[in-house]
Amino acid sequence: MTKRHIPYVACSTAVLGALLGAAPASADPQVHVVHPGESIQKAVDAARSGDTVLVQAGTYHESVEVTTSGITLRGVGPDTVLQPAADKAGSTEKAGKSCAGQGNGICVVGAKNQPVRGVTVADLTVTGFSKIGVVAVGADGLTVRAVTADKNGQWGIAEERSTRSVYRQDIARSNGDAGLFLANTITAEQGAADTGGTVLEQNRLEDNRIGITVRRLRNLTVKQNYITGNCAGVFVVGDENKPKTGALTVSHNLIERNNKYCAATARLPFLQGSGIILTGAEDTVVTHNVVGANSGASPLSGGIVLFKSFVGATSERNRISGNRLGGNGPADLVNQEAAKSSNVFQRNVCGASKPAGLC
């Protein structure tokens, strides 16, 4: 380098340093702290990708809609509570298409053909909403962790049209339908969608109509969950649409005493005493689960049940292996498919099966 280049380099370095030094502080992740009496939604609206909205302990009467990618909405534990807001007339929710207007607590919503990505909802309680505690529509890479969803009218935690989600260490109890409900789409008849590897693990599902419902989805794992006191434990649902529900794994779950009674609906008979149900599913692995003391007189009752769907869709090439079952009624293993179907039962430890010979 010649002497005449030195002033140019020094000048360039100074300019670069000035530019770097002038970078706004907002370029760094921010923590937006919300205290009781303040608006969570206002903090969420102000947050940018990478920011955290930290909600302090207290009861917040509002619904919250998240549409910004990359933000974290986090409480400080179960004592951070979201409940429906009451209007002046005393009703808890206003009509409309907003999150609150639809009767939901927390909504994570992507735009059409543009999913909201990398959102985390964690460490809080969502209770008392007429529809869904936490719902995601059009999300990718969502994490819902250590969330308690209880006493909501329909589902505790739900998603549709979403991929690569993680639901971990959540509690869903006393909800009107499923504690955890995952579907391709709720309103349309379509073939099963690939979730890209969604995981439901280490959750507690208790006193719901169904613990976990997986409907018209593929490439998903349900593992290490504790499921008790529901009418049915795990429900893997398919139908005549293509591709079928399947290519998923249900493993290492403890599913016991799901003996609550739930009346029949337009789509299903009454439910009681069902551990794991597969209907209209294919290529699903059900393995290393402990399934006990689930007993009832419903057509869907039993420990692990393969049930031919009401629209005639068969279950094919499913493998039920290495499970431990006992005290389920009418049997530990129930196969309602044709005797020569491609489903496989092997190395299960159990006492009784329908038909005989599956244990």
Rank of each mutant, 00 (worst) to 15 (best):
G196S: 06
G196Y: 07
G197A: 03
E201I: 07
Q202D: 06
L205N: 00
D207P: 04
D207L: 11
D207R: 14
R209E: 04
R209Y: 04
G211T: 12
I212D: 00
T213F: 11
V214C: 03
R215S: 14
N219K: 06
N219L: 01
T221P: 00
K223H: 02
Q224I: 01
N225M: 05
N225Y: 03
Y226P: 03
I227R: 01
T228M: 11
G229W: 03
N230P: 12
N230Q: 13
V234C: 05
V236D: 02
V236H: 02
V236R: 02
G238K: 10
E240L: 14
E240D: 12
E240I: 13
N241M: 11
P243S: 06
T245N: 05
G246P: 08
G246C: 04
G246W: 02
L248Q: 01
T249N: 00
T249R: 01
V250Q: 01
H252W: 03
H252E: 02
N253F: 04
I255N: 05
N258C: 06
N259I: 09
Y261R: 04
A266L: 11
R267E: 11
L268Q: 15
L271D: 03
L271P: 08
G273N: 07
G273I: 14
G273R: 09
G275T: 13
I277C: 07
I277E: 06
G280S: 04
A281H: 12
E282L: 09
E282G: 11
E282Q: 13
E282Y: 12
E282C: 14
D283V: 06
T284M: 03
T284W: 01
T284Y: 01
V285F: 09
T287I: 03
V291T: 10
G292H: 11
G292M: 15
A293H: 09
N294R: 03
S295V: 10
G296E: 02
A297L: 13
A297E: 06
S298L: 13
P299W: 08
G302E: 04
G302F: 05
I304P: 04
V305F: 10
V305H: 08
L306C: 08
K308L: 12
K308Y: 12
S309R: 11
S309T: 15
S309C: 12
F310W: 09
A313M: 05
S315Q: 06
E316H: 07
E316A: 15
N318S: 13
I320V: 15
G322Y: 08
N323A: 10
N323S: 05
N323G: 11
L325R: 08
G326R: 05
G327I: 05
G327D: 01
G327P: 01
G327L: 02
N328V: 12
N328H: 11
